[in-house]
Design a protein around this nucleic acid. Sequence first.
DNA 1: AGTTTCAGTGTACAAGTGTTGACTTTCCGT
DNA 2: ACGGAAAGTCAACACTTGTACACTGAAACT
Lengths: 235, 235
Amino acid sequence: MFTDVHDLNLFVPSREDLPPSTASEREETGARGSRKQRTRDALLEAALRLMREGRSFTGLSLREVTREAGVVPTAFYRHFRGMDELGLALVEEGGVTLRRLLREARRTDVQFTNMIRGSVLVYKRYVEDNRLQFLFIAGERAGGSPQIREAIRREVTHFTNEMAQDLRGLGAFPGLSIGTLQMICGLVVNCMLNAAIDILDLPPNQPLQEQELVDNFVRQVRIIFLGALRWKEKG
Amino acid sequence: MFTDVHDLNLFVPSREDLPPSTASEREETGARGSRKQRTRDALLEAALRLMREGRSFTGLSLREVTREAGVVPTAFYRHFRGMDELGLALVEEGGVTLRRLLREARRTDVQFTNMIRGSVLVYKRYVEDNRLQFLFIAGERAGGSPQIREAIRREVTHFTNEMAQDLRGLGAFPGLSIGTLQMICGLVVNCMLNAAIDILDLPPNQPLQEQELVDNFVRQVRIIFLGALRWKEKG
DNA sequence: AGTTTCAGTGTACAAGTGTTGACTTTCCGT
DNA sequence: ACGGAAAGTCAACACTTGTACACTGAAACT
């Protein structure tokens, strides 16, 4: 019922729906400000880059990050009080990414099966494109420091709620209260984050394994929505 | 239909079903062997204990662990090649715990709603009782080294498959293939591990928050099973 | 008995860590 | 154009880290 897989989906807005600014949020004016912002971004990016080879954020050292970013260790303190604060900044940045991932799903009456499969494929691509962000979020969601874990939990909840709102706006489950929708979306988001780990751990050029993973993911989301259709409020 | 919440459940066997031996698996004979085993266990336990305060395994140092265990750093190498190998041993131990958690659920025809709620409550208690193990498993599932992640994934899959077998033996979903059951159990297990994190992060003596968490968990599992009931094979 | 095996100890070292204070350089407001 | 604020550098510190090597003492084998 739609020509392109990107046309309709649950999770990810089409390209033209994305806000134009990909740059960082808190901008400073002037040459000095932008310079500061640049090395700040360099630090954040360096941390993410170091996690690429399977290292966890918690195992990174301050000096490593500055080395990767191309600045001297002490320069770090001009931006963050310590690694923990850098972690929190990463959470915030990742949260923005996640929320952008959703934004506005469109009203549709296409069958769920097609819609789900399309959404999953787009999500997969999205995870692969934002590999490092997802590595961080998924990895530290349970393993990071209590503070970071808390921050991530907040972001995920935020994301979940937005998704519930969208689903409601979609008019897909008219019988369900917003609370129930949130619960269901929590399940889906959990499923998504779990799949993100699997996607990221996928060895490259193994289309069979890849197909299997996607299929499983699709079936799981479908199960959830089937359950949602049958859910009786206050039952 | 059952008097005690512990009588019937999906996840956890009753006390009397548990195998008697809580001791470690690979036993060595002789005084020296048992001595070695004791400090080996001390090391494993020390690592878990250090994670109690919200630290992640990846962030632990070899010396820290030996310090906590009450041995000199170099003694470590008599047992493990390095921290990574200790981690793998922890996974194995945790896997045993998880599998013991399931073992044999009994045949029953009680309504799902009651059964699910009971199971969830027992599971919650189980997580609280095995706090450290779950902290490790859930925390390193996405955050640990690639090797450890892989090992955990294997254990979780193993656990999932056993659960699918049990569900099939229960005769609850006669129309579903074993593959579909595995997919569904994967969803449930994922939901369980996620809930484990929440349970462990729960501030003590907050019955309201606790109730909320349990209710949500119950609803999510219920959704999954509702979806399973409606699932059409090869649809 | 004497000998071998081996878990655990003690010492040592090179390398990496977080953080400090005093410095240079660069940009901005006046 | 000058003075000050502030981003980034340099050198140094007190520690911690992983690991190598020679050792001790007790259990196990002959």
